[in-house]
């Protein structure tokens, strides 16, 4: 499903003057959500940066109907909302717009239960790899070696393989996306909206404040993460795995950019020793091996 940038809707779904930091990937991502789903979307937002970005009463900075809810209840609230809207005959697509803490840590049981019940919602995890809103604390999705205010010497554990965990629930659609590739994210949202059942999209969102880089580099770092292979763009459609461009060209490690290009731009990786970089390289290699193994079993490689 190709996306023509010039034909995307011009209606503002993120309204100027909202409360996000300069260079915020979440407001970028929310813009793409509005462009893809239009006025059909009803958004459930658990605690996180996105609940703050909306700004102060009597105005709000997002141009879609929003229900703000507590961390642990995002997916369960969306389940009820989707069922109620269906019974009332409203043509709407309920979307959960949760952060990485609201997905992988606190909101996990609600997400898992909604996936198991097969609720007709789109769950989007906006992964900025720490609890940025409360002051950069580590989460289950913080990568190995990253500095946060609760891991001063770098995190010693690896990132939770969240898309695979949701895919193991055998839901009809699971995908990864990146704010650096909006056309890919928009196409995936449109595809997800056309499928009935539980849909999960994991959006990689580099945060200038928490990752310690210049706000102008948000899109560039998101693209570097994909080009170096640190973040892989793929989708599971009814359990069938498919790599998306540009990740489909990067199966051969020689075609990827060196990981140092991605790490050196971020202050959160400043303290890394050569052996830490080796560990990060090993983690990336393991992630790719999992993908390649799955593709081989399917007979696609």
């Amino acid at each position: 499903m190709a996306v023509n940038i010039k034909k995307l809707p011009k209606k503002p779904y993120v309204i100027p003057g909202h409360a996000a930091c300069p260079g915020c990937p979440e407001s970028m991502g929310f813009k793409y959500l509005g462009m893809a789903l239009g006025d059909k979307a009803v958004v459930v937002i658990p605690a996180g940066c996105s609940s703050v970005i909306q700004g102060l009463w009597p105005r709000q900075g997002f141009g879609l109907p929003i229900l703000n809810i507590v961390f642990a209840a995002a997916a369960s609230t969306a389940s009820g909302l989707a069922r109620a809207l269906k019974r009332r005959g409203v043509d709407a697509q309920v979307v959960v717009w949760a952060g990485d803490g609201g997905t992988a840590d606190i909101g996990f049981q609600a997400l898992s239960a909604a996936a198991e019940r097969g609720e007709d919602i789109i769950y989007i995890c906006v992964d900025n790899e720490a609890y940025m809103n409360t002051g950069i604390q580590r989460s289950g999705l913080t990568p190995y070696g990253a500095w946060t205010t609760t891991t001063h010497t770098g995190k010693k554990q690896f990132k939770k393989p969240m898309p695979q965990i949701v895919a193991a629930h055998r839901v009809p659609y699971v995908a990864t996306a990146s704010v650096g590739y909006p056309w890919d994210f928009i196409a995936k949202l449109k595809k997800a909206a056309s499928i009935r059942g539980f849909k999960y999209i994991h959006l990689h969102a580099p945060c200038p404040v928490g990752w310690r880089f210049d706000p102008s580099l948000t899109a560039k770092i998101a693209q570097l993460a994909v080009e170096t292979g640190a973040w892989i763009l793929y989708e599971y459609e009814n359990g069938k795995l498919r790599l998306n461009p540009p990740s489909n060209r990067l199966i051969d490690p020689k075609k990827r950019k060196p990981i140092e290009e991605y790490l050196k731009l971020q202050g959160r990786f400043r303290h890394l020793k050569p052996e830490d970089i080796e560990m990060i390289k090993k983690e990336i290699e393991t992630n790719w091996e999992d993908i390649i193994r799955a593709l081989k079993i399917q007979g696609d490689l």
């Binding site: 309204i15 909306q54 009463w57 009597p58 709000q60 900075g61």
Partner: peptide, 14 residues
């Protein structure tokens, strides 16, 4: 009920 309406300048002139 107090209700926030979508509009520019939720945080003033940023």
């Amino acid at each position: 009920l107090p209700l926030s309406m979508a509009g520019p300048g939720a945080m003033g002139k940023t």
